[in-house]
Amino acid sequence: METYYSAKERRAQILQLLKSSPKILVSSLSQMFNISEVTIRKDLEELENRNLLIRVRGGAIRLPKLNIAEEQATTEKKRFHYREKRSIGRMAATLIQENETIILDSGSTTMEIAKNLHSFKQLTIITNAIDIAIELSKYKRFNVILLGGHLRDSSLSTVGPIAENTLKIFYCDKLFLGVDSFNLERGVSTPNIEEANINQTMITMVKETIAIFDSSKVNKKSFAFIAPVSKLSAIVTDNNMPLDIKTQIKKMGVKLYETEPDS
């Protein structure tokens, strides 16, 4: 029986292929997915528009590695701006309502939300982060759903088509999105393509997307685009964000919550 791939699944597979091969051909992809070359070209055009590959005659090649907002392991991230992350996590937890279904993205700041849910009796929490799932298991009363998929050692998170397809069966109230880079013009981004893909799927399955990040992430740009700022419902950050950025965020209709870093 033929396997049907949605456009999102197909594009994720194309990016996976580019990891093991420096170049992919339109003709080969057309045969692999049993679709027209015109459709494949549209896929490659979309991926190029998102700065995920470079189109060349007859196909596409992978992007060269860039030193933009280089990815750090979760253990390393925890050492930086910990006071800010701890206060942001506490503030973000106050935006949750009893009985809600929420998604916690992987990351050191979303981990701080997981540590601040003591006042809740019943929540359904979906996460792709193994360390966050372990933290949530300590409450012994929440419905915790850990997404399957390919394990990324650096972030202790699951990514890829399996994780993305599992997400599509849920409809959730809020997503708490950990952000590596925030830019008013270029939106929110992350160093890893697979993380960007699963974050995009998360956004489509929730009523509200709440970005959480410390002010050191402002005016930065990472390798893989996630979403424009207009897709965010709210932002939780510390009180060191530049005034002009705060003004622009509010003008865009995005709620802004600021918190004082722990002493």
Score class of each variant (00 low, 15 high):
residue 208 E to R: 04
residue 62 R to E: 06
residue 161 P to I: 10
residue 118 H to D: 14
residue 152 R to A: 10
residue 185 E to Y: 13
residue 259 T to Q: 02
residue 239 N to Y: 13
residue 195 E to P: 01
residue 76 E to K: 06
residue 151 L to S: 10
residue 251 K to P: 05
residue 251 K to G: 06
residue 232 L to E: 00
residue 115 K to V: 02
residue 111 M to N: 02
residue 243 L to H: 08
residue 16 Q to S: 14
residue 209 T to V: 08
residue 200 Q to D: 00
residue 131 D to Y: 06
residue 61 I to F: 05
residue 1 M to V: 11
residue 260 E to Y: 11
residue 178 G to K: 01
residue 206 V to W: 01
residue 245 I to H: 01
residue 134 I to K: 07
residue 196 A to V: 05
residue 228 P to W: 11
residue 252 M to E: 11
residue 166 T to P: 01
residue 76 E to F: 02
residue 263 S to H: 13
residue 187 G to T: 08
residue 247 T to D: 10
residue 134 I to M: 09
residue 100 E to W: 00
residue 123 L to W: 03
residue 46 E to A: 09
residue 182 F to W: 03
residue 220 K to M: 13
residue 100 E to G: 04
residue 230 S to E: 09
residue 200 Q to P: 00
residue 130 I to W: 08
residue 51 N to S: 12
residue 32 M to A: 09
residue 135 E to F: 07
residue 243 L to N: 09
residue 189 S to C: 06
residue 148 G to M: 08
residue 9 E to Y: 06
residue 232 L to N: 03
residue 52 L to W: 03
residue 183 N to K: 10
residue 246 K to S: 15
residue 54 I to D: 08
residue 79 R to H: 15
residue 15 L to V: 04
residue 25 L to A: 13
residue 120 F to T: 04
residue 177 L to N: 00
residue 138 K to Y: 11
residue 16 Q to N: 14
residue 199 N to F: 02
residue 27 S to A: 14
residue 251 K to N: 07
residue 46 E to Q: 13
residue 140 K to Q: 11
residue 227 A to E: 00
residue 239 N to R: 11
residue 242 P to R: 11
residue 143 N to T: 15
residue 233 S to E: 14
residue 118 H to S: 12
residue 8 K to S: 11
